[in-house]
Design a protein around this nucleic acid. Structure first.
Length: 606
RNA sequence: GGGUAUGUAGUUCAGUUGGUUAGAAUGCCGGCCUGUCACGCCGGAGGUCGCGAGUUCGAGUCUCGUCGUACCCGCCA
C-alpha cells in the first residue's frame, strides 16, 4: 500500500501502530535537536517528528524540506507530550523512521493557508495551488455534495438525466452566443448553448416526462462577481404538469438541499409573491425578505389598472391609508410621477453626515435618484424634515400615520419616474438593511416570484421582447389580451429567490403550434425567421406535444449562497477573470494561420 | 460602451507640501536552538515604484496617454 492512512484520521487510539502517510509539507519547525513537519493532504494535517539523537539522517533530511514538497513518511503513531487541542489529529504525532521526498517544490508565490496572503489575480494564475487551500477544498466539496444531493432527490422523483449537445444552432435572441466554426462546413458555425432549452422541450415531445441535467451553459456577456461566461445549471423539465406541480416538486428540491446540506428546515410553504407586488413593495423582482421593510407608496400616477385582480394587488400594496398623505406645494412632488418612502425603524437620530451619505448613495449614477427627502420623527414627538419649508407639522404627521412611522423612526422618500424611483427605493432598502444589520448571514428566506409579464417593450428597437423566453406560455385567461395589449399579459413563469439572489427560474411552455406562432408574431418575427431559428421545434409540436414546463437553477449561485460567498468564482474550480480570461492558461489566445485557413476564417486587423 | 477604486520587494501593504541611499510585516537564504505547532533568537539578500511621454534643478508622489486588475451600471431571452 502506498499509504496506510490520510493526514486527517489518526487519533490516540492509533498510538503504537506503524503507518505510512503521504502529502504536502505545510510547514517545518527546526528546533536544532529535533524537527517538526506538518504534513497536509485534503483530509487534514498530521505532525511528523524527527529526532537528531535517535535518527540523525532522517532528521537532517527533514530540516531541508521546503514548503509544498511532496513526501511520504513511515513511522510509529505516538501520543504527544504537548497536545494541540486546535487540530483534530493534535493528540498524536508520527515518530518517523523513513522519509522519502517524492517531489521537491519551488517556494509557492503565496501562502497555502486558511487565509492566504495572495491577491485575487495571483491566486487565479496559480489556481492549482489556491485549490490546495482548505476554503477552496471545502467549497468544492460542498459543490460535490449539493450535486449528489440534487441527483439523488430528482432520481427518487423519477427524473432521468439526459445529456444534450454542446454544439448547437445559434439562435440570436437573448444573450450573445459563443460560436464554434465548422471546418467541414466552411463559413458555418455552431453555437454553444445558453441553456438546453429546446432540447429539453423536445425530450418532452419524446415522452421522457421528467428530465434533469446538471449542465454547462455559455453566454458571451460581460462578467460580474455572480456571472461567468460558462456556468452550470440544474436544468429540469416535466410534462403533464401545471405551474403548481412544478413549484411543488422544486420547492421540495430546495427544502431537500437545505435539509441535507445545511440542516435547515422549512415547515411552511414558500411565499408566492406576484411580480408586480414584488416591484411595488420591494423595488425588485428578487427581494431580500430577511427583513420586512416595505416601500410605502405615496403616489403612483402611472399604474395601469385593468381588472379586479389588478386592483386587489393595488390594495395589498396600499395597505396603508393614503388619505392622510398631502403632497401639494413642493415642486419636486408636484412634478413626480411616483412618490414612495421607506420607514427606517429607530433611525430618527441620524446625523447630518449619515443623511448626507444616504443622499450620496441614492444619487450614485447606478441608482440615479436626484435627491433624498427625509423626515425624522423624534422620540420626544418632534418632527424635523428636509421639506419643512413646504409642509407643516400636521402634514408631516399625516405621512407618519399613513406609513406607520413611529416616534424614533426615520422616513426616507424618493420621487420621480415610476420605474426608476421604485428601483432606487429597492436599492435604498437594501442599503438600510445592510446598515442596520438586518440581513443575518445564517438566515434563509426563499420565495417564489410569480406572474411575470410575458413580454417587455423595448424603446430602442421598438418591439416586444420575451421577458423569459419565447416559449413561455401566457396565463390561459390572458391569452385574449395578446391581441389587445401584449404588455399586460401575464406569463406562466416563476423565479426562485433566496435572500435577494435569483437562484432559478422557469415557466410553463407553449405546446400548441398555433399559440407559439402567435407569440412569434407578437415578438415581431417573420414566419421565415421563426422557421429558420425554431422550425425544428415547431415541427416537433405538430406530432403530439404534451403540455410541459420546467425550471433551471444557477448551480454556482446556489452553491455560493450555501457557502456564504458573494462571488461564484470560489465555488468554481477554474473560473475566468473579469475580462473572461483564464489567466492560468492565458486563454483565449490566437490560433495559427493553418488553423484559420482550414476553417476559412480571416481575422480583421493585422 | 460608461462609472468608481487600484497597480511600490516573492507576497500583503506604508510612503507627508515633489527633495539625501524607497520602508514595514511576512516569506526566502545563512547561523544558533530537544517539545514546537503564528516556534524563538542573530545575521543577510531581495525594487524597471505597471508601461510610455510630459512638467520640474529634482517625480513613487503632479499632468496626459496606455496597459492590467477588482466592483458596479449598461448588457445577461
Amino acid at each position: 500500500m502506498y499509504r496506510t492512512n490520510t493526514c486527517g484520521e489518526l487519533r490516540l487510539a492509533d498510538a503504537g501502530n506503524t503507518i505510512t502517510l503521504a502529502g504536502w509539507v505545510q510547514k517545518t519547525r527546526d528546533l536544532g535537536g529535533m524537527t517538526f513537519v506538518d504534513l497536509r493532504d485534503r483530509y487534514g494535517i498530521t505532525q511528523l517528528v524527527f529526532n537528531m539523537e535517535t535518527n540523525p539522517e532522517q532528521c537532517r533530511l527533514a530540516r531541508d524540506l521546503g514548503r509544498e514538497f511532496v513526501v511520504r513518511a513511515t513511522g510509529k503513531v505516538a501520543e504527544r507530550s504537548n497536545k494541540n487541542p486546535n487540530m483534530p489529529t493534535g493528540q498524536v504525532e508520527i515518530l518517523v523512521d523513513k522519509l522519502e521526498i517524492l517531489n521537491a517544490a519551488e517556494t509557492p508565490p503565496f501562502t497555502i493557508e486558511e487565509n492566504s496572503d495572495g491577491g485575487d489575480e495571483l491566486r487565479m494564475k496559480y489556481r492549482y495551488l489556491d485549490m490546495r487551500r482548505a476554503p477552496l477544498q471545502r467549497n468544492l466539496m460542498l459543490r460535490h455534495r449539493m450535486a449528489q444531493s440534487v441527483r439523488h432527490y430528482l432520481d427518487l422523483q423519477g427524473f432521468i438525466e439526459v445529456e444534450t449537445p454542446v454544439m448547437i444552432k445559434s439562435t440570436p435572441e437573448g444573450a450573445r452566443d459563443f460560436v464554434v466554426p465548422s471546418r467541414m462546413n466552411p463559413g458555418q458555425f455552431y453555437a454553444l448553448p445558453q441553456s438546453p432549452q429546446m432540447f429539453k422541450q423536445l425530450l418532452m415531445v419524446s415522452g421522457y416526462d421528467r428530465y434533469m441535467q446538471i449542465v454547462k451553459c455559455f453566454r458571451d456577456e460581460d462578467l460580474r462577481a455572480d456571472r461567468q461566461p460558462e456556468f452550470t445549471q440544474i436544468d429540469c423539465e416535466m410534462a403533464f404538469v401545471e405551474q403548481d406541480d412544478i413549484l411543488s416538486v422544486f420547492e421540495g428540491l430546495a427544502k431537500h438541499l437545505f435539509r441535507e446540506v445545511l440542516q435547515v428546515e422549512f415547515d411552511k410553504p414558500f411565499l408566492k409573491l406576484p411580480y408586480k407586488e414584488a416591484m411595488a413593495l420591494y423595488g425588485s423582482d428578487k427581494p431580500d425578505l430577511r427583513f420586512p421593510m416595505q416601500i410605502k407608496q405615496f403616489r403612483d400616477s402611472k399604474r395601469e389598472t385593468r381588472n379586479a385582480e389588478e386592483s386587489e394587488i393595488t390594495h395589498t400594496v396600499l395597505s396603508h391609508d393614503t388619505s392622510r398623505i398631502t403632497l401639494s406645494g413642493f415642486p419636486v412632488f408636484d412634478e413626480a410621477e411616483y412618490i414612495g418612502g421607506l420607514v427606517a425603524t429607530g433611525c430618527s437620530e441620524y446625523s447630518r453626515k449619515q443623511l448626507d451619505e444616504l443622499t450620496e448613495f441614492v444619487k450614485k449614477p447606478q441608482i440615479g435618484a436626484k435627491g433624498l427627502i427625509y423626515v425624522k420623527y423624534g422620540t420626544d414627538g418632534s418632527v424635523k424634515s428636509s421639506v419643512d419649508k413646504y409642509f407643516d407639522a400636521a402634514a408631516l404627521q399625516g405621512w407618519a400615520e399613513a406609513t406607520g412611522a413611529k416616534p424614533g423612526d426615520l422616513l426616507l422618500i424618493l420621487a420621480g419616474k415610476r420605474d426608476k424611483t421604485l428601483k432606487a427605493l429597492g436599492e435604498l432598502r437594501l442599503e438600510m438593511g445592510r446598515k442596520l444589520g438586518l440581513m443575518a448571514e445564517n438566515q434563509y428566506v426563499p420565495l417564489w416570484v410569480v406572474d411575470f409579464p410575458l413580454v417587455e417593450w423595448d424603446e430602442e428597437t421598438n418591439r416586444f421582447y420575451a421577458m423569459h423566453h419565447p416559449f413561455t406560455a401566457p396565463k390561459p385567461e390572458d391569452v385574449p389580451m395578446l391581441d389587445i395589449n401584449p404588455g399586460l399579459v401575464h406569463a406562466n413563469a416563476y423565479d426562485l429567490v433566496i435572500n435577494g439572489v435569483e437562484i432559478g427560474g422557469g415557466s410553463i411552455r407553449i405546446h400548441d403550434a398555433k399559440l407559439q406562432k402567435r407569440m412569434f408574431e407578437v415578438l415581431g418575427f417573420t414566419d421565415e425567421q421563426a422557421e429558420y431559428r425554431f422550425g425544428f421545434l415547431m415541427n416537433a409540436f405538430k406530432f403530439g406535444a404534451p403540455p410541459h414546463g420546467g425550471i433551471a437553477f444557477g448551480f454556482d449561485r446556489w452553491v455560493s449562497l450555501f457557502a456564504g460567498l458573494n462571488s461564484i468564482r470560489d465555488v468554481i474550480a477554474f473560473p475566468k477573470n473579469n475580462q473572461g480570461r483564464d489567466v492560468m492558461q492565458d486563454s483565449p489566445s490566437v490560433i495559427d494561420d493553418e488553423q484559420l485557413k482550414e476553417l476559412g476564417i480571416r481575422v480583421e486587423g493585422d
